[in-house]
């Protein structure tokens, strides 16, 4: 089901020279990656490893020292490549003097939308990020998580085919972060390509088709998620209300089997995340 490449980054190198006398910092070192249209790609790596820099280069906010980036086949340095992209920067800030709805409307207009189509879209986006109640308040009074949501609404306003999210769940509470996760899954169902980076590995694991691990500006591991993390030679059984006799039988069966060992046994724990979600429902 190859529908072409949404993103293609070839041998991207980005050097920064903070001042004339300082020595250059290589933020991204020969990174290549490509994302199939319709995939969700997760870029993970420690702080300062070059994730945001890669994304900015892809959006043409930074010009690459060498290498090329393109979006749906168009060079990132060209304005036209931005018609089909929505971007949520890390720690987004918008004009504090605009209200939530005005902000989304402003970005919609910048994408060339107008009239009733724009108004419908603004309402739809505000509802999508669940800010209906706050849409007439100025952003100066928004909390961090609310700003993040407005950022998401802004990124999606023109219904782009590619969405780039730089830490979409930073500063968002677990419920909100679960909603953002669900939203990304919805986008995926609709065939929209998502390129994200996040430190919440559990979520990355839940939603991404493809993963890249970047460290010190170098891509150290890349591939499809299931290939990267599955332990092919192990199997896990989780039983609901097993009787002690049944468990005893299983242990005997396993012990009798040559070459198989029982590695662990116990009660599976719920994650803190699910517990939090359960309690704050």
């Amino acid at each position: 089901m190859s529908k072409g490449l949404a993103v293609e980054i070839k041998n991207l190198v980005k050097d920064f020279k903070p001042s004339l006398r300082a020595k250059t910092i290589r933020a991204v070192d020969d990174v290549s990656l490509s994302i199939q249209a319709g995939d969700v790609y997760g870029l993970i790596g420690p702080n300062g490893s070059g994730k945001s820099t890669t994304m900015k280069a892809l959006l043409g906010l930074l010009s690459p020292t060498s290498g090329t980036c393109s979006i749906f086949g168009q060079d990132s340095m060209k304005v036209d490549s931005r018609n089909d992209v929505g971007f949520l920067p890390e720690n987004p800030y918008f004009y504090k003097h605009l209200t939530g709805a005005e902000t989304v409307r402003f970005y919609g207009k910048l994408c060339g939308m107008k009239g009733a189509e724009l108004e419908d879209r603004v309402r739809e986006m505000i509802a999508l990020v669940e800010l209906d109640a706050a849409s007439d308040r100025r952003l100066g009074g928004y909390s961090k998580g609310m700003l993040q949501r407005i950022g998401l609404a802004q990124a999606l306003v023109q219904d782009p085919r590619l969405v780039i999210l730089d830490e979409p769940t930073a500063g968002v509470d677990p419920t909100g972060s679960r909603q953002i996760r669900d939203l990304i899954l919805t986008l995926k169902e609709r065939g929209i390509t998502v390129f994200l980076c996040s430190h919440l590995l559990e979520q990355v694991q839940e939603i991404c088709d493809q993963i890249g691990i970047i460290h010190h500006g170098k891509m150290v591991r890349e591939g499809r998620l299931e290939d990267l993390i599955s332990l092919e030679d192990r199997t896990e059984l989780i039983l609901d209300k097993p009787s002690p006799e049944l468990l005893e039988k299983i242990r005997h069966l396993v012990a009798a089997q040559e070459g198989t060992t029982l590695i662990s046994e116990g009660h599976p724990r719920t994650t803190l995340e699910s517990l939090f979600l359960e309690e704050t429902k």
């Binding site: 900015k56 043409g60 018609n83 929505g86 971007f87 920067p89 800030y93 918008f94 994408c111």
Partner: peptide
């Protein structure tokens, strides 16, 4: 400074 510019230039705005 506020990085508002990122979001504007990421839209198709020359």
């Amino acid at each position: 400074e506020d990085r508002t510019l990122y979001t504007i230039l990421c839209k198709p705005v020359p």
